[in-house]
Amino acid sequence: MLELFSYGDTGWGDEILMGLATTMKLAVATLPVGMIIGFLIAFAAMSGIRAVRYVGVGYTTIMRGLPEILTLFVVYNGAGLLLNSLIKWWNPEAEGTDFSPFLAGVIALAMVFGAFAAEVIRGAYNSLDKGQIEAAAAVGMTPQQTFWRIKLPQLWRFALPGIGNLWINMLKDTALVSVIALDDLMRMTKVAVGVTKQPFTFYLVACLIYWVLCVLSEMILSRMERHANRGVRRA
């Protein structure tokens, strides 16, 4: 049993670890992109310009209503088709190429993450204390200074629990990329199952690894929350 998961030619330990590495890379690459999308969409949804506001609100409404796997296929196949027609238009002789599944994964997951993050950021922005922002104006800070020095650090505190949840959801959603042939944890598990014919054992191990990742994330997040909330509540 143990040798099934050993490192090297006879066991699947190294393959599964490589899959785990891909999963982590994907999640870590998605986070900043998703946050940027989240901020852009949140500010669009709060914009004073009606058309911009509609784009922001429309984006979150649509993206949150679609299955993640559909978004992934739309990005993967759609971007693939677009890329190929661009290549054909540039050079009709060129061979068709496949859109990178990793890139498709990052884009799709970030699009989903961004839509939910936008709602979290918007909620956090609305819970900022107006008085503290006025106090910043009263000491003579410019709006830019007020944003970077007062609003953003506090936004972080309000948004952290929500963003933490989204991180965990996104970590789990990375499993979807196995469907578009990216060698993540899920897909490496599938490969191992194909050879060993022990589906339950291997999928259980995959589940346990995801579980550990999520529980670890939760522990780190609750520490971060405690740090972010230091001094806010009365002792």
């Binding site: 008085g131 503290q132 106090a135 104006a137 009263a138 001094g231």
Partner: peptide
């Protein structure tokens, strides 16, 4: 002059204190 230049010459103390909660 910019509004900030005016404001920094006038201190303000608010009813609700409005201290920045994320700073000591």
């Amino acid at each position: 002059v910019p509004i900030e230049d005016i404001r920094k010459r006038l201190g303000m103390v608010f009813q609700q204190f409005n201290l920045w909660t994320h700073r000591t």
